[in-house]
Design a protein around this nucleic acid. Structure first.
Lengths: 212, 212
DNA sequence: ATGAAACCTGAGTCAATGTTCAAGTTCGCG
DNA sequence: CGCGAACTTGAACATTGACTCAGGTTTCAT
């Protein structure tokens, strides 16, 4: 059981050693994102990936053990990129409700620029369940911490009942909202600007539907 | 272009003419729901479907033109069943907010009893996009009408800005909430009863997060 | 009863494609 | 340079599973 040097946990087991290798790997990943994004996991062909990357079929297997492995690598990478993008957009928000709005707006805009990302992550539900759950689990955990902190600062209502339960369920409700608004207004029809969509959604979850 | 007698729009083109035929068709549909639900579209085998149904492989093609066609038939059927179940649960609700709560609770409970249904509809996103969009489009339309009617009765706040835009976006936000809560509390972990999940979510969208 | 339509059978066809591999080329260190 | 490691190549392999079809059985209207 010789151990193997691993810089980034869990990625492939073939870190390129030369400049040429790193470049090829990068091109393969980009090609895979395009191929999976356009055709979906099952329609996508390794052939198509290597074709787009401009390398021979066999080269793929120098860098990845299987079709599923590239796919997982992409899911991880895109999950990371999405979280980073939203975090960046939110970092100067004065309070939680402002952060919600900025985050949602940034998310929808991001989805518009990267529709392939959306498709790949959602399809992970059926191709790499664990990666999919991990993705939303980390989103939900971050959300929960944010809600909890805002509650402590008195920025948001504590809700009725157990606060842990409440924070967790609220997180999933808010994530669902983002994902579906991203699908409807980011991918399917772009008939409202992200800012307006975020405004409506944030008014919904901050003021509520009840007439006052 | 001779027209063909079609009772139910768009189904297969092979209505059975005998009692035996109707029974076989029913068994094939049930078997397909189980096979697709357990293994997903691509892992599912026609072989597996006919095996579960207790008929020979070729019999499948007496009733369906292809694997995709059964899948689409199932999506339509399950979409209908879900809407019917939620509509039934909601029919005696005194007002919109009560209806939201009853509907969400019923939805989560339904998902728990029929996880295969959930998987099939979500996978349609990648196997039969049009059927998937149709499913959520009809949900959203129903939602929009309900919100609009409630607004007219003065039960809910009109929100700021264009009311049509608001109703549409609110519909998708609420659907996203249901779908994600259904996934998290109906399928992944059943650590809260549907009633409690619905309570938290409905408090969120009726009272809002803002502290008062 | 009877014959035609409906239904069932399951071995065989066939195309698609993920993966392997032996042979060649390029890189970079000493 | 020069040599071993890294990298590339693409034909060949192997599996898989959707779909066909020619022939047999059952149903049911007359």
């Amino acid at each position: 059981m010789a151990s193997r040097a691993e810089t980034t946990a869990g990625s492939g087991d073939r870190e390129p050693r030369t400049e040429r290798g790193r470049k090829t790997l990068r091109r393969l990943l980009e090609a895979a994102a395009a191929e999976f994004g356009e055709r979906g996991f099952h329609e996508a062909a390794i052939n198509g990936i290597t074709g787009r990357a401009g390398v021979a079929l066999g080269t793929f297997y120098t860098y990845f053990e299987s079709k599923e492995e590239v796919f997982r690598a992409l899911v991880r990478e895109m999950s990371r990129a999405t979280r980073a993008h939203v975090a960046e957009a939110v970092k100067d928000a004065p309070d939680r409700l402002a952060a919600e709005r900025l985050g949602l707006e940034a998310f929808i805009a991001f989805v518009r620029r990267h529709p392939e990302l959306y498709r790949i992550i959602e399809e992970a539900q059926f191709v790499a369940q664990d990666a999919y759950r991990e993705h939303y689990r980390s989103f939900a955990d971050a959300y929960r911490r944010n809600l909890s902190a805002a509650r402590s600062r008195g920025e948001i209502s504590p809700g009725s009942g157990d606060v842990e339960e409440t924070d967790e369920a609220r997180s999933w409700a808010l994530i669902g909202t983002s994902v579906f608004l991203g699908m409807r207004y980011g991918i399917w029809e772009q008939d409202l600007p992200p800012g307006r969509v975020a405004e409506i959604a944030i008014e919904l979850v901050s003021e509520g539907l009840r007439r006052r």
